[in-house]
């Protein structure tokens, strides 16, 4: 049990030798010299995720690499009488845009292009701001991180659309939708970026350069 009177509230939990359990959020006393286990759920305790910076950087770089095949390869092909051209995510969006389906094109474009890109740029920026001074306040950067985490799943939108169309559009030899390799690359990119966001430790943002900075 922690005696509240001995806690220095001008300092963070790390300086006060506490650790919040990542699993059950119980606040435990923490002894850096030994392996600490949570009093409540027996999970391993850590004040900061070990190697969070390196892991996030590595996974973000991987998702940047996967970003290219995801957008360059066709995610599906609409075959009319056995013929047809592959549609990448961007060309599909452009087609919808030209056909007057502007709101729905905007949703697809934002969810499957803007979100992944913003996520990657955001994570790179957050990593940069851990090492170098940043103009954005730490509170706003924490918010930024939460949004990055929250928007992750929405990038799967296009993959699900492909799943529905592939299954639904099968009118004999007349009209058929076939999935393309871009869908796999896209799914991998989304997964990698979700893992990258999860491996980041938002407490790193509050660790750097003293407590006076807001």
């Amino acid at each position: 049990m922690i005696n509240l009177e001995s806690v220095d509230f001008t300092q963070n939990g790390k300086a006060n030798h506490f650790a919040t359990c990542d699993t059950c959020h119980w606040v435990n006393p923490f002894n850096p010299k030994i392996d600490n286990l949570c009093e409540r759920c027996n999970s391993k305790l850590q004040q900061r995720k070990p190697l969070a910076f390196q892991k996030t950087l590595a996974l973000t770089l991987c998702s940047i690499i996967a970003f290219f095949p995801a957008n360059l390869y066709p995610i599906m092909t609409i075959l009319q009488f056995g013929k047809g051209q592959g549609d990448t995510i961007l060309s599909g969006t452009l087609y919808m845009f030209q056909n007057g389906m502007i709101p729905i094109a905007a949703i697809v474009f934002i969810a499957s292009f803007i979100f992944p890109l913003a996520k990657i740029i955001g994570l790179i920026y957050l990593l940069y701001s851990v090492k170098f001074p940043s103009r954005i306040s730490r509170r706003h950067r924490s918010h930024m991180y939460r949004y990055i985490e929250m928007f992750g799943p929405w990038s799967m939108l296009d993959v699900f659309v492909v799943a529905i169309l592939v299954s639904l559009v099968e009118i004999g030899n007349v009209l058929e939708v076939v999935a393309g390799p871009g869908a796999t690359a896209f799914g991998i990119m989304v997964l990698l970026s979700i893992f990258a966001a999860a491996s980041f430790d938002s407490k790193m943002l509050w660790d750097e350069r003293g407590t006076d900075e807001r």
Binding site: M96, N99, W154, L157, V161
Partner: peptide, 22 residues
């Protein structure tokens, strides 16, 4: 918890409706 994406699939249904409607 964070891997459940039913609402994204729902929007996927909407998008495919719009794609095929015409």
């Amino acid at each position: 918890d964070s891997w459940e994406m039913l609402e994204v699939f729902m929007i996927g249904i909407l998008v495919s409706i719009f794609k095929l409607r015409a």
